[in-house]
Write a protein that binds this DNA or RNA. Structure first.
Length: 311
DNA sequence: ATCCAGGCTCCTG
DNA sequence: CAGGAGCATGGA
């Protein structure tokens, strides 16, 4: 068996081909990397130095892409070296990356609004170019939110990793294994016991499987929710067992990129406000609403910048 | 040890 | 309908 016979097709023009992903001026690769590296247990992308690898899937076919900064507000996108080349074109990944890294939001109105704000002003200057890193896959966004309910973040990352490495597909390249988040179909028929063995609580196991079944059955989808609009999508999500206000808004923030999504009950948000405002206790929900009232329409970004202040 | 974690459901009164 | 117990584990 030959590995490099004359019948092996070689397409030089495809080798080393790269595409440019244009990003707005208000985009910071440093801030993006800071977010992407915040947990060593993260398994849905890999960061090596200032290079990001992520396994994507289109038409059921996985492909590894590599992202580097290109300068002039652009990223360089290539296929990851050492990985099987998918049949889909690299151009298919460009719009995904722009959505993932929030390249389509104009942050200038947010910055103008925050400019003279005593709380948000310093944060937007300190973390300028920070954008809401998305979770374009609805199932992933919901599972991640449910997983993170009421537990500390390191533990949540560990649970996610176990879930992904137990039920997701993967591909090895360059001595590293890259993972896809499981599809709803890949989780729908898993017994709750299997999730409990990964240290999910019995309750969370039920929540995750319930969401998986809804999506596998086509009763819940990103397209369907997008068609509903903000208020109706929220109502639909809240009707699902295991999804409360925090989870619904978290998903709308990370998956639907709704700038007015507002996970107001978030413990990290409370701690950030306490710290930024020098309070000796956490703010009440009423106080939070008052603090956020000037930022109407941009709550998700205000929350994201406040989260950033914690690390 | 005690309290808190990127909460939600379900049961009381 | 507000309030609180229970969930279950890890880190400070």
């Amino acid at each position: 068996m030959t590995t490099n016979g004359p019948d092996m097709p070689v397409i030089p023009s495809e080798e080393g081909k790269s595409l440019s992903v244009s990003m707005p001026e208000e985009f910071s690769w440093d801030e993006t990397l800071h977010y992407l590296t915040r947990s060593p247990a993260e398994c849905l992308h890999q960061v090596e130095g200032r290079t990001v690898y992520k396994l994507l899937e289109f038409q059921g076919e996985p492909g590894l892409v590599r992202l580097q900064e290109q300068g002039q507000g652009a990223l360089e996108l290539t296929f990851g070296e050492g990985a099987p080349r998918p049949s889909w074109p690299l151009s298919q990944a460009v719009s995904y990356i722009r959505e993932w890294l929030d390249g389509d939001t104009d942050l200038r109105p947010f910055y103008r609004m925050a400019e003279n704000d005593g709380l948000l002003g310093p944060l937007t200057r300190r973390y300028r170019g920070l954008r809401i890193i998305g979770a374009p896959d609805l199932f992933e966004a919901l599972c991640w939110a449910v997983t993170g309910q009421q537990i500390n973040l390191p533990f949540a990352y560990m649970l996610k990793r176990r879930l992904v490495e137990s039920f997701g597909r993967s591909l090895e390249a360059g001595g590293r294994r890259h993972w896809l988040f499981p599809q709803p179909e890949e989780l729908a028929d898993v017994p709750a016991e299997a999730l409990k063995a990964l240290q999910f609580t019995g309750r969370k196991a039920e929540y995750l499987l319930g969401i998986a079944r809804l999506m596998a059955d086509g009763e819940l989808s990103k397209e369907g929710l997008l068609a509903l609009g903000f208020a109706e999508a929220e109502r639909r999500l809240l009707a699902i067992r295991g999804i409360g206000a925090w989870t619904a808004h978290y998903a709308m923030m990370r998956c639907f990129r709704h700038p007015a999504a507002f996970p107001i009950g978030d413990a990290g948000l409370h701690n950030a406000l306490k710290q930024q405002l020098g309070l000796d206790r956490k703010p009440t929900e009423e106080e939070i609403r008052r603090i956020f009232s000037p930022w109407s329409g941009w709550e998700a970004y205000a929350v994201f910048y406040l989260w950033r202040s914690l690390t």
